[in-house]
Design a protein around this nucleic acid. Sequence first.
DNA 1: TCAATTGCGTTATGCTATAACGTGTGCGAT
DNA 2: ATCGCACACGTTATAGCATAACGCAATTGA
Lengths: 132, 132
Amino acid sequence: MTTPTLTKNQSLVFDVLTKAEAPLSAYTILDKLRDHGFRAPLQVYRALDKLLEYGVVHRLESINSFVACAHPDENCHSHGLVAFAICESCGQVIEFHDHEVDHRLMDWLKSQKFKAEKSTIEIRGHCASCAA
Amino acid sequence: MTTPTLTKNQSLVFDVLTKAEAPLSAYTILDKLRDHGFRAPLQVYRALDKLLEYGVVHRLESINSFVACAHPDENCHSHGLVAFAICESCGQVIEFHDHEVDHRLMDWLKSQKFKAEKSTIEIRGHCASCAA
DNA sequence: TCAATTGCGTTATGCTATAACGTGTGCGAT
DNA sequence: ATCGCACACGTTATAGCATAACGCAATTGA
């Protein structure tokens, strides 16, 4: 359950995301890595697929972007649901885990006999600094 | 706060969504409406924008698709958060409102001084019928 | 050694969404 | 009445996001 050693491309992509202050789109990542030899979107997407699989990166569906996990040490996949608050001004993301919400949603899904596999909880709005 | 009369294009798009058994992408809607004179994506997107604004249609961010609201009578915007369970086999969507989850998330956002504006809660997996 | 797996690079393509322009129509204010 | 405004609409073009399909190279393990 530990994260495998990252390949060169995976490391490059992960570094870019780690240093970024906000989520990045795949194409933005591509641009930032052109100097390192990246030429095509697929190089980014393939690295992202693995990083997502390892749980060290999250995909933000509502803004088609990617962000490094806030707790790289622990394995995010073991946390159950993850929620994100995304600031539409500065782009910053706050990651959040809550067992209450988790249980409540899971109970409901169970009552519907729905077998959950992936979840997306994203709140867009304005963070403390940006909410003028 | 009542829904205005729909224009021709808005009605056409809304009808297609209402009759569909699963969420549709904007381009799928476009194809279904070519016989009614639709020729360009914008005709669909513009209608969708309004329908979303009126709260009679939801956008599913995780699958880039749109679905008619499950409670066309009430105004969905007044329900607070909405959650969706999306079956990856048959495409069917179950819409869900829960005040518990709502409050819990809102409390957390408040504690972060985050001003929420739009929310997305989507669970992908397999529905009762499809979970073999 | 051979086969299977995995990562990689490249080209091409498809899907999703919006920009920018112009037209027509209804409607209230002067 | 007509002017101005707001709004829906139609069209063309383009931007932005994601994957298909091909082939090569390195690694591993039977």
